[in-house]
Write a protein that binds this DNA or RNA. Structure first.
Lengths: 219, 219
DNA sequence: AGCCGAGTCAACTTCTGTGTTGATTTTGCT
DNA sequence: AGCAAAATCAACACAGAAGTTGACTCGGCT
């Protein structure tokens, strides 16, 4: 909304797209993401972010328009990552369902790991809370989440219908169970920790698949 | 810290313990809990709470000392609920492990349901984030969480060692998987919804137990 | 040396939310 | 009705954080 001053200069810098400018901007978004993950969005101040990246709080506005933009920038693309995953999975009709689930678990966790801490910020901050619903990007995100969840539901529903999974399972609850296992990792998993995503994926797949398959499978 | 004014009157009212006073106070804590659950602690203002309960923001201070007290009041006892559950379970050595797990899942979800939304506030707000660690209640809570988690770990470890569960499972990850399924309910479960906790518990038990037991069990 | 422009920052303004005060209203009791 | 205690609220003080401004620095270029 500003017609002069920092807003103008920011707009110009962004237009030019100077690499060092973009790099510094990226750094800020990254630092912000780390702090958002640690302290939460509301509790993180621009002063914190400035300090983390070693510039005055005011300089941040040369790179971004607002605190919210930092959050958006950090989580943008995150939900589409998930969605793309699910979509590509839905395409692999030739694979056995069990194999598809296994792949889904592994690649989801890989995505979480590789996009740390942004993904976890996304999970942690209920994005619906931050945005007043009506903003376009908020709608888009909500849409993606819905689409994503229905893809997973669908996958599980199919598995039950075609006899791969035991009958009697509630597809929705089964999806929630899996989703809970995966998303709860945001509370304890650190990429630099001693447990690798591959180990986690292996264990979770073991448990979940043995838990839902029609006939028992030995590891 | 205030030596006169509202603080004094609050202290006195609390000392007397008039039932209507306590009731109104309880209402405020409840309303606050609902809002904390919906919007998050930081994002909720005292004005919101006042409005929800139909009094001026300032009146709240006749009942509580601070916003934080509302949070504490809401979640106090929550972690000990969990802990008691786990402890009583640890005592039931005569029950088969599978049965104990099933009971654990059901009673945990019942606890969550009956203490809605407080429990979910507790889960959602990483309590460690809200408190600066050094406050005594924060320490106590942290201690309880640690104790609780180690009890569950222990239960699962035993089950693997005594052959009830499949070998090869990582006890820690198995516990996290279960914990994730249960705690993630905070994102989608509402006590007044169409799904009952009994249904959820039944499905989750099915999945988890079939997933970990040494020999397959048919429902 | 002097200029130019990208980037920085001290010093605001503005806003929002917490907590306080003392007067005022409401309630319950005689 | 009249009074005292209980409860409420308008108004204010204060703090902290977002966002803005315009002057300044500093490296590269002529």
């Amino acid at each position: 909304m500003t017609t002069s001053g920092i807003g103008r200069r920011r707009a110009q810098a962004r237009r030019e797209g100077n690499p060092t400018y973009l790099e510094k901007r990226r750094q800020m978004v990254q630092a912000a993401a780390v702090l958002f993950k640690e302290k939460g969005f509301e509790a993180t101040t621009l002063a914190d972010i400035g300090e983390a990246v070693g510039v005055d709080r005011a300089s941040i506005y040369y790179y971004v328009e607002s605190k919210k933009e930092l959050l958006l920038e950090a989580v943008t693309g995150v939900s589409s990552l998930n969605l793309d995953l699910a979509k590509s999975l839905a395409g692999q009709q030739h694979l056995a369902t069990a194999e598809r689930i296994r792949m889904f678990i592994l690649s989801t966790l890989r995505t979480y790991d590789e996009n740390y801490p942004q993904v976890y910020v996304y999970i942690q901050e209920n994005m619906a809370k931050v945005a007043p619903d009506d903003e376009p990007w908020a709608k888009e995100m909500a849409r993606q989440v819905v689409e994503f969840e229905s893809l997973i539901d669908e996958l599980i529903r199919e598995a039950i219908e075609d006899g791969t999974f035991r009958p009697g399972l509630d597809p929705r609850l089964t999806a929630k169970a899996l989703w809970g296992m995966l998303n709860w990792t945001h509370r304890w998993h650190r990429p630099d920790g001693s447990t690798t995503v591959e180990q986690i994926a292996e264990n979770f797949s073991e448990i979940f698949l043995a838990g839902v398959l029609a006939e028992p499978q030995e590891s």
